[in-house]
Design a protein around this nucleic acid. Structure first.
Lengths: 247, 247
DNA sequence: CACGTCTATTGGAATTACCAATTGGTAAAG
DNA sequence: CTTTACCAATTGGTAATTCCAATAGACGTG
């Protein structure tokens, strides 16, 4: 659909200029007539683009004065403050209960779907999708829409927070995938046996290992950082290059 | 600020006409030129209003065809499907874990705030606010932003869903407030004693009674309905009015 | 009856003009 | 020298008009 109306293109351009730092929050945009020249469109088109930005609350229009860039509410500055540890701890406790609840009400069809996610993950393709599907199906099996909604929200927090995605990077690497698979299998077996306590325990074990893995990764990263800085200092203060130099 | 730009007035008018049923979802709005006549403004102004509605996703513009009213995503048709039972069950399990977690990390200041919510509730004023604050502070005490976020989400589900608000109506009536207060006090004491298991149990007990109260209310309502219908039938088929009429 | 073409309708965009609010400078008064 | 009042330039607000492009429905042809 390249037939987007013209003003949307202008909206994108102005928006990228704003987020690109050309117009910091609080600053004034060039007058409409100038923008029309810059983007080589008519003034009405610029006005339409500005109205779109205004509805989106990116700018504020002051009659007779100009168009001003607003602070970005960046929804979820609160979300950004959530760390991978907190998220994983929450998921451990909540999805532990979800698994226990699901064990009492899961159907054979759902168990079959779960088993498919295990096969998918073993094949190695779509590993993340299989992971999501696994946890989601268990939430569905609770017959509780609020639980499903909560589990989905937590997953969304994970994938929408770049910091968390980064922190999970190494933990979910291919080399660790068999661990996830083993733990998922344990959860699956507990659910198959309709054993609520075992399902809860297996889910806790799953997330508990993840938390430890996150700690290990954090520790390794911190250690790396220390080494790097030490190496920098060594470079700065070393006398290797100037002592006993054979001229 | 009565100096709102003209097109905002048009946006409001069109929007109220849509929600007023003049233009059902899927139907086409009158052409821009007609709207300009109807509202006695110029066509560019109509265009600006339509663009605002388009950015808000109330309408869809099809070039050469017309402007069509979109379904209102009334955020959360999925949310509407969540029943009071499901929500309460979720809160029982999740906030049970929250209480257990909080018991290990709650501060004396937070305990003091909790105690204040108990006093507030005892005084009877701001009972709902005190309830919300009570559960919220416990979530804060977990030192886990994801948990806090989840608890807040569940609370929002409750207050934003009219059906759930209605179902909770009788359960949270003043006559039952002392029960809630007693249960909150029990949770508070468990937290004060830093007893995770006791806190979890007290929270479970709290929500478990709520679930039973919801069931009772549902049952009473259904019974009422049966009686009402029976009474209607009685009125329809009764012979009281026509037999042995003293003329 | 099916298919393609033609045309009326409708939105898309540009141009021009003029109005209204704001702003900032300048000149006059104190 | 400071303050105030006014005026003019700037900037957005609205309108009127024109032309273009996409769509849909009518119409005609095979």
């Amino acid at each position: 659909m390249k037939n987007r109306r013209l003003f949307w293109r202008i909206v994108d351009q102005i928006e990228s200029m704003i987020s690109g730092g050309d117009f910091p929050a609080g600053s004034r945009l060039p007058p409409e007539r100038e923008l029309a020249e810059i983007f080589d469109v008519s003034r009405p088109t610029i006005r339409e683009a500005i109205i779109a930005l205004e509805v989106r609350e990116r700018v504020e229009v002051k009659t007779g004065s100009g168009v001003y860039v607003l602070e970005q509410n960046n929804l979820s500055k609160a979300d950004m403050a959530i760390s991978a540890f907190e998220l994983t701890q929450s998921r451990a406790l909540i999805e532990g209960e979800v698994a226990a609840l699901a064990a009492t009400s899961i159907t054979d069809e759902e168990l079959a779907v779960l088993h498919r996610t295990l096969v998918d993950m073993e094949r190695g393709e779509y590993a993340e999708e299989a992971d999501e599907e696994f946890h989601r199906v268990i939430a569905v099996a609770t017959r509780n829409a609020a639980m499903l909604r909560t589990v989905e929200n937590l997953w969304n927090l994970r994938v929408s927070n770049p910091q968390i995605v980064s922190d999970y990077g190494s933990v979910c690497a291919k080399s660790n995938q068999h661990k996830i698979l083993d733990e998922h299998t344990a959860i699956y077996n507990a659910l198959k046996g309709r054993d609520a306590a075992a399902a809860r325990a297996a889910m806790h074990k799953h997330f508990n290992r993840l938390i430890n893995a996150l700690f290990d990764a954090l520790e390794a990263k911190a250690l790396e950082e220390v080494k790097r800085k030490a190496s920098e200092k060594r470079g700065l203060y070393s006398l290797d290059g100037i002592l006993h130099r054979p001229t």
